[in-house]
Nucleic acid binder design. Structure first.
Length: 586
RNA sequence: CGAGGUGUAGCGCAGCCCGGUAGCGCGCUUGGUUCGGGACCAAGAGGCCGUGUGUUCGAAUCACAUCACCUCGACCA
């Protein structure tokens, strides 16, 4: 392609509404244009990189025996209600209706369609396993679209679905896709880590996220340097300091009881103190002059309409993902002051467990190990001091977020925290959807059995953006050869010079003939701005046709290393091809 | 959804406090000089100052409302 006919609106300055490094570079390189909040125009360079990434994904999916298809983008309300996701996905879905008032959603993912395929085509175990995938636009009405194309309301997703006769087969296939994902990201030059994850609105028994570690990442992950444990921070099981108990769920009741002293074994009783205007932990710390860990933090949640009190030590945070799982709730939100006020049993800012009736109380394991702490008195402007776990009853569970200094649940070494971008997510859905949709097949035994299912996603734009994030310098992007929109930038320094133009034209044709993706910068811009654009856009190679042509020489520059070589015009196509096959290391 | 911030030329911004018919840099057009790291000179084009209502003789500027966008938070108990 010739630059003079190609739309590449590079920007000299940083767009004012973008902060993330990868996004600033992509906008400046003329790959993207924002249309509306969360919606972007993909300009030619973006399209080319997306295609490169998609093709790498396709190659590895096909190698994993998954075949490409395409499902409809609109899904009927009826279908989504059958799987229970009309509500589970709720406001995240864009909804619309047809002329007969039938309601549809623009699919946020396509489990239902995949299930329909299984329903149509799977009769017996002989039809299993099978796996299909698509690379298709997805729409999600995000609460707050952010960071450009990293969290948009319309994006490309590779979503794959597999169906199996049993769990063992699913496990094996899941591991295959896991490997395929690592191979995909490796081929794209991305440094990624697989972490165990929450299944969220998808549901299912197990899942892992493939994360690109980045200071601009939106997710916290934990990694253990000594045993290799890695997990999304929100799922990390926490050790209860002081009690030694660790775990998820709500078990260990007996173990916990042994840490709670009987009321007779200690002297002071809870004492009511006037604490005007001290509601938050910070205000209480100032009021009492004690440490945050000497207080009990009580947070009221609305779980499927029922109010639940969650309690953690004052210096901890309630982990809503864990709480949701413990309660097995479909929706979980913080209760509003109005909802709490209506109960007349407690007052926001002064919530505490002692004497609190009519609420389900769930406390973090650590609370059992707290002694003589301060908690709300369920009365405006009053707190209780000298409260102990024996003063109330609660269900104990692992309820808090992992935090700095947290120990590895696998080996006990200290966990390292990092920010990361979620590029892929794989789920063992098991029978969660197939049960609801009643998908059966005839097993070898002749019995009718329910299908077992897995699903596997990759965010395509995010992947492109992460490549930019991991491959750039202060001048711009440094594309790995196999994701680069073009691999060679052919720069004619002086377009008014007939000899330079003649040689450029010749090289342009020769490069194309050789199958090299070349952009010829045939514009009459000044050399300085051509070079700057070349580095900003990040072509792996730059071929400069300039003053050297009188001696039959052109210049070949490697973007990553900055290495410059003078090459004979006659040899330069071959030299470029060689370099592209084995690009110099930085 | 909550808090804060920003909307002025294609892009990046100043002007607003203290009302008096809009400015800078880049980009764009034309002519000229340049021509290997974002040139220089000259002459131009380009704005419903997000939108609406109000205050005022007069509003980019003040007030209210509204919309859009950005950042942080979604954990405040």
């Amino acid at each position: 392609m010739k630059r003079s006919h190609y739309l590449i609106p590079t920007l000299k300055e940083k767009p004012n509404d973008i902060e993330q490094v990868s996004q600033v570079l992509m906008f400046r390189a003329g790959m993207l244009k924002k249309v509306q909040n969360g919606f972007f125009m993909y300009l030619p360079l973006m399209q080319r990189s997306l295609k490169k990434v998609s093709d790498v994904i396709r190659k590895h999916m096909e190698a994993a025996d998954s075949s490409e298809c395409k499902f409809p983008i609109l899904v009927s309300k009826e279908t989504l209600e059958a799987s229970g996701r009309w509500n589970a996905f709720g406001k995240e879905m864009f909804k619309l209706s047809d002329r007969s008032e039938n309601e549809f959603a623009i699919s946020p993912t396509n489990e239902e369609a995949a299930c329909f395929a299984a329903e149509c085509f799977v009769r017996s175990y002989k039809d299993l396993p099978f796996s299909v995938y698509q690379i298709q636009q997805k729409h999600r009405d995000e609460i707050s679209p952010r960071n450009g194309v990293m969290r948009a309301r319309e994006f490309m997703m590779k979503d794959a679905y597999s169906f199996h006769a049993d769990e063992a087969c699913l496990d094996a296939y899941y591991n295959r896709v896991h490997k395929a994902y690592l191979a995909i990201f490796n081929e794209l030059g991305l440094d990624v880590v697989a972490v165990s994850a929450d299944t969220g609105a998808m549901g299912g028994s197990g899942s892992q996220e493939i994360m690109a570690v980045s200071p601009d990442g939106e997710t916290d992950i934990c990694r253990c340097g000594s045993c290799g444990f890695a997990a999304n921070a929100e799922t990390v099981p926490c050790v209860a300091e002081g009690s030694g108990v660790r775990g998820q769920g709500s078990g260990n009741a007996d173990e916990i009881k042994s840490f709670i002293p009987s009321p007779e074994s200690r002297t002071p009783s809870p004492e009511k103190k006037h604490t005007p205007n001290a509601r938050t932990i910070d205000e209480l710390v100032r009021f009492f002059g004690k440490q945050t860990k000497d207080f009990l933090k009580s947070v009221i949640f609305n779980a499927d309409g029922e109010l639940v009190v969650a309690m953690v030590r004052g210096d901890r945070e309630v982990n809503d993902v864990k709480l949701k799982k413990i309660l097995d709730a479909k929706t979980l939100e913080m209760a509003t002051a109005a909802e709490i006020g209506k109960t007349q049993k407690t007052v926001v800012g002064f919530v505490g467990p002692v004497g609190l009736k009519g609420f389900k109380i769930i406390a973090d394991y650590e609370v059992a190990a707290m002694r003589d702490f301060i908690a709300g008195a369920n009365e405006k402007d009053y707190h209780l001091t000298c409260v102990n776990p024996s003063d109330f009853t609660a269900q104990y569970a692992d309820l808090r977020f992992a935090t700095t200094g947290e120990k590895c649940p696998a080996c006990g070494a200290e966990l390292q925290f990092a920010k990361a971008t979620e590029l892929g997510h794989i789920f063992k859905l098991g029978k969660r959807y197939t049960d609801k949709l009643d998908l059966k097949f005839t097993a070898k035994s002749g019995d009718l059995q329910t299908l077992t299912m897995g699903c596997y996603g990759i965010g395509v734009e995010r992947t492109v953006a992460s490549v930019v994030d991991q491959h750039h310098d202060d001048k711009g992007i440094i594309w790995p050869v196999n994701v680069a929109p073009f691999t060679v930038d052919l720069i004619t320094v002086d377009t008014t010079n007939a000899e330079q133009m003649r040689v450029s034209e010749k090289l342009y044709t020769a490069l194309q003939k050789k199958g090299i993706e070349v952009l010829w910068d045939d514009t009459d811009a000044r050399p300085g701005s051509k070079f700057a654009d070349c580095e900003l856009i990040g072509f792996p190679l730059r071929l400069v046709v300039g003053r050297g042509v009188v001696n039959g020489k052109v210049e070949l520059v490697d973007r990553a290393s900055g290495e410059k070589t003078e090459v004979e015009v006659a040899d330069c196509v071959k030299a470029a091809a060689t370099k592209l096959r084995s690009p110099a290391k930085k």
